[in-house]
Design a binder for these strands. Sequence first.
DNA 1: TCCTATTATGTTATTACATAACGCTACGTA
DNA 2: TACGTAGCGTTATGTAATAACATAATAGGA
Lengths: 144, 144
Amino acid sequence: MHDLIRQAEALCQRSGMAFTAPRRRVLEILAASETPMKAYDLISKAGEGGQATKPPTVYRALDFLCQLGLVHRIEQDATFVACNHAGHSHPMALFVCNTCLKATEVAYDEVAHILEKAAEVQGFHLTRLVVEGRGQCQDCALAA
Amino acid sequence: MHDLIRQAEALCQRSGMAFTAPRRRVLEILAASETPMKAYDLISKAGEGGQATKPPTVYRALDFLCQLGLVHRIEQDATFVACNHAGHSHPMALFVCNTCLKATEVAYDEVAHILEKAAEVQGFHLTRLVVEGRGQCQDCALAA
DNA sequence: TCCTATTATGTTATTACATAACGCTACGTA
DNA sequence: TACGTAGCGTTATGTAATAACATAATAGGA
């Protein structure tokens, strides 16, 4: 978890970007969370240590972290999750368990190629791909 | 386009559900639109013919139509689009052109199987899958 | 050093997306 | 008739995201 912070620092230094206080704070909170978080939960949590933190601050940090691939936005329910496989972005699908709400990352290089081809057949050139799933994770299946 | 309405009527009758006025209205508007629409555009458009239409009315209709597979919600940008391949739902990916904003549907049975297997390897059982893309469609590529 | 451009944050306000909760109507069925 | 169910209308509110403008910090060049 502190690994992630270190990775972020390294990544920023290499690319000449600043790993500022609000960015660090947001990443820390996400990294410490077992499950993806909603933006406004992040906002109130970020504000716990004294001064109020306003939406734009957190959204800006989220944009930044998403661009670096340190955080992913889950489109289905507008939540955000820290990325384990940080720094680098081969395409990743996010599967969220309906019971425990934890997110599992799954690589999908192969799938991306197939979809790119399928799109190309219709003359469509893909630049971004979102693959997300819902279901039940192993732990919850066993617990049931 | 009127096909879609007829299909909807048939589908409802078969399943014993009512194809009520607001549901018809919302589907008509979506079917007439070239591009996916935002919920609040739908709301104001639905209200054009006299009485105001309020958010819950439209959202309820949308939920209904989505469940029947007559309409799809595009998670990336919270828009809604009428489904050409109505009534039945093999899995469909939606690719949206960044230029003209039109949505293209692409079947992805094969991809679904691969992802299901990839998930199963990690003990994750998929029940829902979202596949969405962004890019440039053929027409816009040629026009550029 | 001083100026300026750039990058990022702070702050206020607002826009956009979605649903809770309640009451009423219409309809089918015992 | 009495009841349950499905659906709509309405008010109010909750939640997500951004516009617009002001301020601070820093780096590079004259």
